[in-house]
Structures are given as structure tokens and as C-alpha cells.
């Protein structure tokens, strides 16, 4: 295997909402082709970190560099180009409620490509079929279940065969089987597209099944306290909090499932 390439570098990032500091001094690398998990207790700022990475909020201090290039410093045209390579799903769905699933999935294609309507229809049908929603083209998000909405969000995120995939709690609220299927889908996407995947998740099963690297954000000290492969961290983290989190509160010496 050849040398790992840094894809995204988080450089001394501090995030705050107004005067409310969320996380400070985050500094780590995400390598190309990684399935990178952002972990941490509820409310520690995982979604906030993700939103900084996708350029919705500017950093208080520090930088986020994509192959050495800062999104926030880039001009509008360049930002547009960079965003073309990203696929994103949101914690609360983010599907456009006024549009059908087909229109939702077609939007990025219309936005970034010159494809004809017929070609777009074909791609949309394929992407929806990939996430198990073949035939649901004309449904509105309010007409399908929560789990199906998650998958529809995924279909929209992968519409443009993105280079980087961001998922905010993709499997929250899914039953174990669906959530496993989703994991497989994510891995499949990662392999077939060679994409870098960044996931915010709590699901331990998911973390161990797909993650190749991770960062642990701590709400109390408001910074990252650990970084590395979660399978290794479970046994060897210096921080009891991390070991406990990964062993779901049972004693770290116990044999984790």
C-alpha cells in the first residue's frame, strides 16, 4: 500500500457561536480514502465541526485545508468548484420538503452538470435504486418514513459521485438491520468512488464496522482528547472516557462485543 495522502487538514481550529465557545485547538489530519469518524458525547460539537468543514460557518480561529487549500479564503468560483466534489447528509434530514425525491436528487445534477432531463432521470432512478428507494421518485419527503428519508438524503449526497462524503448521524433512528445495510452502502460508496468519508455517529457497531480513523471531541475540556483508529483506541486510549465510550460504559478490561 502506498503512502497515505493527507486530504483534509484541520489546523488549530477554534469554533464558537458568538461568545459561546464550542471546541478549541482542534488539529488533525484526515487521509484520502479514510472512513473518518467524529465521536463524542451529545452536544460536544460534532455537528458544529461538520458544518465548519462544509463551509457553513467560518472558523473563529484556525483553518480547514483541503489538499492545502482553504475553503474560506477561496473566491466564490473556487468555492463552487470545491463544493461540487462534496456530498452531504444532514442530521435532521435536509431534504427539500417542497420537492419530490426525484427532484431532490436531481437538483445537484441540474446545478453542476449540463445533462439533459432524460439523462438526469436515469441517474436519479439509479441513485434511488442504490439506496433501496427505486420507484419512490414521485414521493414527497413527508410521505416516507424517517429511515427512508435518511436514505433519500444519501441518494442526493451521492448524486454527483463526490470525492468527499459528509454524513451527520446517518444511522440514528434506524433499526439494526437497516443501519447495517447503510454501513455497507457507505463502505461500497467509499470503495467504488475512492471517496474520503467523514461521519458523525454514536453507533458503536457502525464505528467498529467501518471506521479506519477517528477523533474524539470532549465537551468538558472543549477540545479533542484522542485521535486514531477506534479499534485501537478502545484498548489503548490513555483516556478512560474514550475507552468507556467505545466499550459503552462497561469496564475497559471487559471483553467488548
Amino acid at each position: 500500500m502506498n503512502e497515505k495522502q493527507v486530504h483534509i487538514h484541520i489546523d488549530h481550529l477554534t469554533m464558537a457561536y458568538g461568545s459561546n465557545l464550542i471546541q478549541k485547538d482542534l488539529d488533525f489530519d484526515i487521509y484520502r480514502g479514510d472512513v473518518f469518524v467524529i465521536m463524542g458525547g451529545s452536544g460536544c460539537g460534532k455537528s458544529t465541526l461538520l458544518k465548519h468543514m462544509i463551509g457553513l460557518y467560518p472558523p473563529s480561529t484556525g483553518e480547514i485545508l483541503y489538499e492545502g487549500e482553504s475553503f474560506n479564503q477561496a473566491n466564490e468560483q473556487r468555492q463552487f468548484e470545491m463544493r461540487r466534489g462534496w456530498g452531504i447528509t444532514y442530521q435532521t434530514g435536509g431534504l427539500f420538503s417542497a420537492m419530490t425525491l426525484a427532484q431532490n436528487t436531481a437538483l445537484p445534477l441540474q446545478q453542476y452538470t449540463e445533462l439533459s432531463a432524460a439523462e438526469i432521470d436515469d441517474i436519479v432512478a439509479y441513485k434511488l435504486a442504490l439506496v433501496g428507494l427505486g420507484g419512490y421518485q414521485d414521493y414527497y419527503p413527508s410521505e416516507i418514513s424517517g429511515g427512508m428519508q435518511k436514505r433519500a438524503g444519501l441518494a442526493r449526497a451521492i448524486a454527483l459521485d463526490p470525492e468527499i462524503l459528509f454524513f451527520d448521524e446517518p444511522s440514528a433512528g434506524l433499526d439494526p438491520i437497516s443501519s447495517q445495510l447503510l454501513d455497507e452502502l457507505i463502505l461500497e460508496m467509499q470503495e467504488s468512488l475512492g471517496a474520503t468519508v467523514i461521519i458523525v455517529t454514536h453507533e458503536l457497531a457502525s464505528i467498529f464496522a467501518i471506521a479506519s480513523n477517528s477523533v474524539f471531541l470532549d465537551a468538558e475540556t472543549k477540545t479533542m482528547i484522542d485521535y486514531g483508529d477506534p479499534k485501537v483506541l478502545r484498548q489503548q486510549s490513555e483516556h478512560e472516557k474514550v475507552r468507556k465510550f467505545l466499550a459503552r460504559g462497561s469496564t475497559p478490561s471487559g471483553d467488548p462485543a
Binding site: G55, I88, F96
Partner: peptide, 17 residues
């Protein structure tokens, strides 16, 4: 406002729209 709470507006911005 509802679109804001459901992160629809975030999705629009990140699609470059």
C-alpha cells in the same frame, strides 16, 4: 424558518445555490 430548522437551507447553500 422551518427550512432553517430542518437544515434545508444548509443543504441549499452547500449545493452552491
Amino acid at each position: 424558518g422551518t427550512m432553517q430548522t430542518r437544515e434545508e437551507i444548509d443543504a441549499i447553500v452547500t449545493l452552491g445555490i
